[in-house]
């Protein structure tokens, strides 16, 4: 077994999950300049939506792939709706008014979502039904490649390319990038800011839900507390890559994934979280704008 390539493959898989979540973070942050602490928990909500749908009787008879697609679609719709409701009822009135208020509310929403899911589904882990892809392992040159590895990396890659295309080639995407650069100017140019904020929330929530379903299918388990730490690391990824930058989110996600795999595979797994957050602090010391980001306004 070739450990190095195995570690790289693992890193890319973990990194793909981080990157998908980081994309949502970076889009919302690019527009509203606020950290949405509840974003990671949307992954958890998506995973549970998917899990609940997979338990339904009428869906159980279907073959695995259409079953997953139906559950995935349901999760995307459900999670997006939740994100929209949260945006309209709780977030909108704070955006642009109170940075601290927004962060406090999203933080509390994160915990409230976890507690609600815990009350409904219990504290125990839930298990996705096994699927053929994740149990089949192919040996490629001494590296055990799981069918789901290819699915995760492939799907995540497609979504990332799609997002980059969206940001640079569509009017909505271009408007979002313009908004990220200069809020006031974009408003003056007649860009509908509240629409773009809603769009960013929905896209972010959809990516989160897909991440949740993928994670459930890939690792087989979901739990009420799976989202927060994932969200934090994804945000770290977005900052390391350059917040507000779509390509940066992908790069940051993969960096964190590879870092995590290499610490586990070569250094000391006990320290892996510390290494990641240490890397974040280091990046902020050396290059506060992240790898691909523009300079963050430094003041004082």
């Amino acid at each position: 077994m070739d450990t190095f390539i195995q570690v790289v493959l693992t890193g890319f898989t973990i990194g793909s999950f981080y990157a998908l979540v980081a994309l949502g973070y970076t889009m919302v942050y690019g527009i509203v300049r606020l950290i949405n602490f509840a974003h990671g928990d949307l992954v958890m909500v998506g995973a549970f939506f998917g899990w609940a749908l997979l338990q339904l009787d009428w869906i159980e008879g279907m073959p695995m792939l259409p079953r997953l697609i139906v559950a995935g679609a349901g999760a995307v719709v459900g999670t997006s709706l939740l994100a929209l409701v949260l945006l309209r009822t709780l977030y909108t009135r704070l955006i642009g008014r109170s940075t601290l208020g927004f962060m406090l509310v999203t933080l509390s929403v994160a915990f409230a979502l976890e507690e609600i899911v815990k009350l409904i589904f219990g504290a125990q882990q839930k298990y996705y039904p096994p699927n053929d892809l994740s149990s089949e392992t192919i040996d490629i040159g001494g590296v055990a490649v799981n069918g789901m590895d290819l699915v995760v990396i492939g799907l995540a890659g497609t979504l990332m390319v799609g997002m980059i295309w969206f940001a640079h080639r569509t009017i909505t995407g271009t408007a979002m990038r313009a908004l990220a650069v200069d809020h006031d100017a974009a408003r003056l140019m007649g860009i509908n800011v509240s629409f773009l904020i809603a769009a960013a929330f929905v896209i972010g929530a959809s990516l989160a839900a897909i991440t949740g379903i993928l994670s459930g299918t890939y690792y087989g388990r979901v739990s009420f507390d799976m989202g927060f730490a994932l969200g934090l690391k994804a945000f770290t990824a977005a900052v390391i890559g350059g917040i507000g930058n779509i390509g940066g989110a992908v790069l940051g996600g993969l960096t964190i994934g590879l870092l995590e795999a290499f610490v586990q595979g070569y250094l000391a797994g006990a320290w892996s979280d510390a290494v990641i957050f240490g890397a974040l602090i280091l990046v902020l010391y050396i290059r506060p704008s992240g790898i691909l980001g523009e300079r963050v306004a430094e003041r004082a």
């Binding site: 300049r33 950290i35 940075t99 770290t236 974040l280 902020l284 506060p288 963050v296 306004a297 430094e298």
Partner: peptide, 15 residues
């Protein structure tokens, strides 16, 4: 950290 955007403090302090 405090030289940077105020919300960076939140994430760095978690770290």
């Amino acid at each position: 950290t405090l030289r940077l955007r105020p919300d960076y403090l939140a994430i760095v302090t978690i770290g």
